[in-house]
């Protein structure tokens, strides 16, 4: 059954500069919604507004029928920013334990959840290593693991797989698909075209406007392109 999870219509200005202009989105459960667009097009601002960190200048965002921002709703969202957002002096495990208790993972489930997410990102053997010794890709994976810790109903991921090798990236996307099947809504921004192909629907963002929205096939048909990459370029990306 498909239900609307996020319903948004937003305009965002920083001073006089318009970053998002009348972007309307309706997102449902069981979908992976990909946001595509050149750097600086407003993707990050949009996802921040969707998960309640930022507020729109005009318009509204409602999640599960309630108006954002709302602390009860924020509990149900897992957010992974472009920055890794880790405490470098601490070990991977200490980071996980901290964010688990902040995001409300029950004490008796913590150890189990930590094992699960670390297995998923293939970092089980580095639990007790300090993050400052991690490579870029490892930090990215740990950051993703933290976003998954509290089993959120909505996952908002800002370029989650930058610096992760193709094999592991594939494995992570398999997990996204499993999560999607279990009813989770995943919003993901990406520059990687084969990832875009795996999204249920895509939104093309340019200069703060949502210029096209549809399944990967619909977008390809509309632009008469054989690949998403060509479609992306034909929209002037």
């Amino acid at each position: 059954m498909t239900t609307t999870i996020i319903d948004a219509n937003v305009t965002k200005r920083f001073g006089k500069k318009k970053v998002l202009e009348d972007v309307t989105l309706t997102l449902t459960n069981n979908e992976i919604f990909g946001l595509l667009g050149p750097s600086g097009s407003g993707k990050t601002t949009l996802v921040k507004i969707l998960c309640g960190i930022d507020v729109p200048t005009e318009g509204h965002v409602s999640v599960f029928g309630k108006k954002m921002p709302d602390l009860e709703l924020i509990k149900r969202i897992g957010y992974m920013a472009q920055a890794d957002a880790l405490y470098h002096e601490l070990t991977a495990k200490e980071n996980l334990v901290f964010f688990a208790s902040i995001s409300g993972v029950k004490r008796n489930k913590r150890a189990e959840r930590i094992q699960q997410v670390m297995k998923l990102v293939d970092l089980e053997s580095d639990l007790n290593t300090k993050v400052e010794t991690f490579s870029g890709g490892m930090k990215r994976r740990l950051s993703l693991a933290i976003a998954l810790l509290h089993e959120p109903d909505i996952l908002v991921l800002d370029e989650p797989t930058v610096g992760i090798d193709p094999a592991l990236r594939n494995k992570i996307w398999d997990t996204f698909e499993i999560l999607k099947e279990s009813g989770v809504l995943i919003v993901v921004t990406t520059h990687v075209m084969d990832e875009a192909e795996r999204c249920s629907r895509l939104g093309m963002v340019r200069d703060g406007q949502l210029i096209a929205i549809g399944t990967p096939d619909e977008i390809k048909t509309k632009t008469e392109a054989s690949t998403i990459e060509q479609a992306f370029l034909s929209y002037g990306g």
Binding site: I53, K75, I77, Y79, A83, D84, H88, F99, S103, G104
Partner: peptide, 14 residues
């Protein structure tokens, strides 16, 4: 600057 504040504020912490 390292982004953890944003992550914290994307969690239900008051």
């Amino acid at each position: 600057t390292q982004g953890t504040l944003e992550r914290l504020l994307a969690s239900p912490i008051k």
